[in-house]
Each structure stands twice: as structure tokens, then as C-alpha cells.
Design a protein around this nucleic acid. Sequence first.
DNA 1: CTACAGCCCGTACCCTAGTACGGAGTCAAG
DNA 2: CTTGACTCCGTACTAGGGTACGGGCTGTAG
Lengths: 147, 147
Amino acid sequence: MGSLKTGELAQQAGVNVETLRFYERKGLLPDPPRRQSGYRQYPEESVDRIRFIKRAQEVGFSLDEIRELLALRVRPGTTCSGVRQRVEQKIRDVRRKIADLEAIERALTELTASCSSRGPISECPILENLDGEFPSPREAKAKSRRP
Amino acid sequence: MGSLKTGELAQQAGVNVETLRFYERKGLLPDPPRRQSGYRQYPEESVDRIRFIKRAQEVGFSLDEIRELLALRVRPGTTCSGVRQRVEQKIRDVRRKIADLEAIERALTELTASCSSRGPISECPILENLDGEFPSPREAKAKSRRP
DNA sequence: CTACAGCCCGTACCCTAGTACGGAGTCAAG
DNA sequence: CTTGACTCCGTACTAGGGTACGGGCTGTAG
């Protein structure tokens, strides 16, 4: 044992069977070995791979980007420097995403704070906590806010 | 001064003019005042709003979710408790995304580390740093890996 | 005053990421 | 050995997020 049929993999990974075929076509999931009948036999690790894809999607990577991410591992004889370049770019991308999310988190936290501190209704003005809160494109715009 | 035409806003925010109309239709951008000719007059803050939308998209929020996020602010007389519920859910979503990204970041960092420590080619095995690294669906699966 | 860029609107089109469909082959249980 | 669940494949369809198109108005620089 230790190999999965499409239905089993789909269920364990929480996706549709068609999605697996789709990912295979797109090169996100390597073509698995088949038995003589043509049935696919997925290794158990495929579950992790699918889940990784799903998580990466949830944080805003496209399937193309995810294919790149996955390609970064499992390279037998690639030159390190070439890989390093791309990995370091990816790391920067990821950090930018994290920074953006942290800004959103701060804004939301302030929002609950301003909400819960004063008690009831209409004392909860919930203002523009989310505006202009994003320093991440490394340029700090001088805002001239004139009435 | 202090109001923008569609083309100006589009350019400053780095999006297509059509995108602005699209967002307006979708309720992401409130209908701006018009002059008698019908020309839209956007307030300057619209730039921030568009940029926010773009950032939020990059970290995996759909336009529907972004509309909700934007709706959380600027509420005149909503009941705090109702808002709080939703905000706190959002905060959890955001934290999960951050955790996922941090896992990816760690994996990528290890990857460069394993790459740069030993020198040249083919000594760079770059293995499955990215597999099974994701604890975030709060269930730790006991893996029985049998040869 | 007229030209030409810029705006208006509705509609049609495009890409991405799946989902669904349906006819044919497979396989385990009864 | 048949039946029902599962698999195969190719193709078609969908929803989300835009983009493009084209005909008609606007507004400002010459």
C-alpha cells in the first residue's frame, strides 16, 4: 500500500477530482505512475503537495507562481546562484505580503479597540483606520490634506 | 483643486481606467460626485482606497472580501457587537495567512541556506523543504510512513 | 471655432481557475 | 458474471476579475 487513487487523493486533500487532472495538465502535479488499466497511483506525499498549493493560493499566489515555488525544490543539478536569485526574490515577495497583512491586522485590531473601549452604539465611529496605512511600496508620500 | 478625473486617478493608483468603472459597478469604489458634464470627480483619498484594494488582492482577498473589509470602516450607526464579530473573524483570517506566509518564508530561507553553505553545483540538493511544513489547519496528522 | 485628447456608457471579449458532462473502460462485491 | 461505484479522456461551461471597443459628448490649446 501507500498509493492513492484519484478519488482518495482528492478526498484527503479536500479538492475535486477534476482539480487534480487540471493541476496535472498545468504541471503543478507531476504525472503519477499508472497501473496497466490507466488508473493513476499517487504517492502519499501528493496530499501535502495539493495542500501546499491551496495554502499558497490563499495567500495570493497564482498557479504559475506556485509552479515556480514548487520548482525551486527538487532540482538535481541546477546552478545554485541561479536558484538563489529567484529564491531571494520570492522571499522578498513573501515578506511584502506579510507586511501588508500585518498592516491590515493592525488596522483591524485598532478597529475593535476603538469599538470596544467606548460602550454602545453611535459612539463607535470606526473611521478610516484602513486608509493610507500602507508604507510598503517603498515610497512615503507626503500627503497634503487641505480642507 | 483636490479632485481627480478618472484618468488621473487611474494613473496615480496604477490601474486601468476601465478598472475604476469596474470597481464602481462592484461597489468597491463609491460613486463619486460628477460635474454637470457627467465627468467623475474623485477625492484624493480614492488613490489610497484603490491601492488598498490592490494590496488586499495580492494577499489573497477576493473583491467581495475586500468590499467587506472596506465596509467595516465608515459605519455611522452600526451596533458594535455585530461589527466586532466580523472584525474578529477577519483578524483570524489574516493571522492564518500570515502564519502560512511565514512557513513559506522559512522554507525558502532554509533553501537558500542549504544552497549557499556548500559551494558549487550538484552539491545543492534542495530537497523537500516545502513539503508537509504546514501545521495551520489545526490538526496534526500522524503520518505512518512505511517502506 | 475647431481639433483632438479625454471622458461617458454599454457591450463584448479575455484569462485564470476550476467544474461539469458523458461515453467508455475497470474492478470488487455479491 | 453482472452490477454499481469508480476511473479514464476530451470537451464545454462557469465565475471572477478585469480589458477592449466603439460611438457620442466635453473641454481646452491652438
